[in-house]
Write a protein that binds this DNA or RNA. Structure first.
Lengths: 238, 238
DNA sequence: CCAAAAGTGTTAGAGATACACCCATGG
DNA sequence: CCATGGGTGTATCTCTAACACTTTTGG
């Protein structure tokens, strides 16, 4: 028998088991042209000195997604990001200390518009390329793989990629991002045709500067238009 | 402060909140040609006499999916079914008693091969057509809608429909089931063409009997072949 | 003027859709 | 022989995939 902080006490608290519940986040960012994942080095046992997904225990009066936002803000200084729940993991024994159930989210951080703040400069937070990951604590390796699969799946159907990019981006930049996430080469002309068909990317007059070749045109994502189309049931397919 | 049953006691049990955790199941079955959902009438407050999704508290040493199986067996007598996790709900206040986080599964019961046993004959368990649902307890209405969407989504990509049907079924029966789930009419010839293209449904020589019109041929789902194809990354599309 | 990457259309093939008549069975 | 639903093929269209050259810029 264990004493826990639980203010909503009533009969049920006596009758039923109360496991610990955490949220863990697979945070993706585009760093130096590569798809990277944010990991945190654990300072305490278990898995001391191992890398792990950012996350932590939910508070009693906090929604699940709010908990994910809070943990990311606390641990990484990231404030604005895209968040989506993808799976819940609860195998007994996945945490050697006690029963812990974790609700996993994947997140996208825009590293162009939100440089990581103070807390991320600490030596225990780092971005790892998805094809060069260290061994992870707990079952975080499995969670990370599932999160990557969820990102790859979703990115084909919903215009998520713009969460990675600056407001103004070039089409080659966008295509490279898709190729990075999906791990496959795309045909330039067909890619642009499909993109044009979605109708949610507008060309600006402005061009790239400072490149030693033809300058690419900047484009912007027309978010409001997409949201209107999404409401009408329109799909986004790349 | 509350005392709970928790044998894995250690330092973390003191420091972090421990909410109650349940699994809830949206159980679908094909009953009398209609898509129905299994609901349970609550006998105790809160929401006394309201209908609710079957489900219940997880045990401390039990995997999430095992908990879902156990609850369904206990509450409905259903032993063999398809189960898939689709979302986790944890809004504070969703249960008026205390903080309860619920991991939601959708399930498919084969009512041809597994008639519901004793416990389901009790007056407090019933099948409701998905377009004639009563008001549900807690946020179960929302969970049910999401579960139905998950079923509709999944059924187009994975051969789940066979979970609803007897081992031998006719093609009109199969098509009607798709139409029921997807709520749209399908072209008979095109439907059969697509189905043939998947290659996982075999025709038998045997025909339907006792109908006052041309008898339909029985077919079977070739599950092993599908599993082999699925491993090779093949998709199922209807 | 050279190197490097941006930009741009057409054609062929595959897959999806629309569509109408004959067949078998029981009453 | 009638009513009911089972069973079958083709033509069109749309979407996808393959593919090569010209343009712009900086050095």
């Amino acid at each position: 028998m264990t004493v826990v902080e639980n203010d909503n006490s009533d009969l049920y608290s006596y009758k039923y088991p109360h496991p610990a519940v955490t949220v863990d986040c697979v945070v993706f960012g585009l760093d130096d042209g590569a798809l990277k994942v944010l990991l945190i080095k654990r300072l305490d046992p278990p898995f001391e000195d191992s890398w792990a997904l950012p996350g932590g225990f939910i508070k009693m009066d906090e929604d699940l997604q709010d908990a994910a936002f809070r943990e990311l803000r606390e641990e990484t200084g990231v404030a604005q990001l895209y968040l989506e729940q993808f799976h819940t993991y609860g195998r007994p024994g996945r945490d050697p200390r006690e029963r812990v159930i974790t609700i996993a989210y994947f997140a996208i951080v825009n590293l162009f518009e939100h440089k990581l703040s103070a807390s991320t400069d600490a030596k225990d937070v780092a971005w790892f390329p998805v094809d060069g990951l260290p061994a992870l604590a707990f079952d975080h390796g499995e969670i990370l793989r599932d999160g990557l699969a969820a990102l790859q799946y979703k990115v084909r159907r919903v215009p998520l990629v713009f969460e990675f990019l600056p407001q103004k981006f070039t089409l080659p930049q966008l295509q490279q991002l898709y190729e990075t996430i999906l791990r496959e080469a795309l045909d330039k002309r067909n890619f642009r045709k499909k993109l044009a068909a979605t109708g949610v990317v507008d060309a600006l007059e402005e061009h790239q500067t400072g490149v030693s070749h033809r300058a690419a045109r900047y484009h912007v994502f027309h978010r409001e238009l997409w949201e209107k189309k999404a409401e009408e049931g329109e799909e986004f397919k790349i």
